[in-house]
Amino acid sequence: MNTNRLSENITAALNAQMTKEAHASQTYLSYAAWADREGFGGIANFLFKHAQEERNHMMKILEYILKRGGQVEVTAIPAPPENPSSLNNCFEKIFEHEVENTKGVYKVVKMSSDEEDWATWNFMQWFVKEQIEEETLVMNLLDKIKIAGGEKISSDILYSFDRDMEKISGDVTAARDVTTINP
Rank of each mutant, 00 (worst) to 15 (best):
Q71T: 12
Y106C: 06
M111S: 08
N45D: 15
E92G: 09
N83G: 06
T75G: 01
K67Q: 14
E82A: 13
N88D: 06
G70P: 09
V105H: 02
E82T: 06
P81S: 00
N88S: 03
G69P: 09
K93S: 08
E98C: 12
E53W: 00
S113M: 04
S85P: 01
E100I: 07
V74F: 08
K60Q: 14
L66R: 03
E54C: 13
K67S: 14
I61Y: 06
L87H: 00
G69A: 05
E92W: 00
E98Q: 11
K107E: 15
G69R: 11
A44P: 07
H50W: 02
Q52Y: 12
A79N: 05
P81F: 00
H50G: 01
V108W: 08
Y64P: 00
E53C: 07
L47F: 08
K67F: 09
F91W: 01
S112R: 05
V99K: 12
E73M: 05
F46S: 08
K103P: 04
I77H: 07
E54G: 05
A51Y: 07
G104V: 13
R68E: 11
R68L: 14
I94R: 00
I94L: 13
E82K: 07
F91I: 00
A79P: 02
L47D: 00
H97V: 02
G69M: 09
E73W: 04
S112E: 04
G70F: 09
E82M: 09
E96S: 10
N88K: 06
L62C: 10
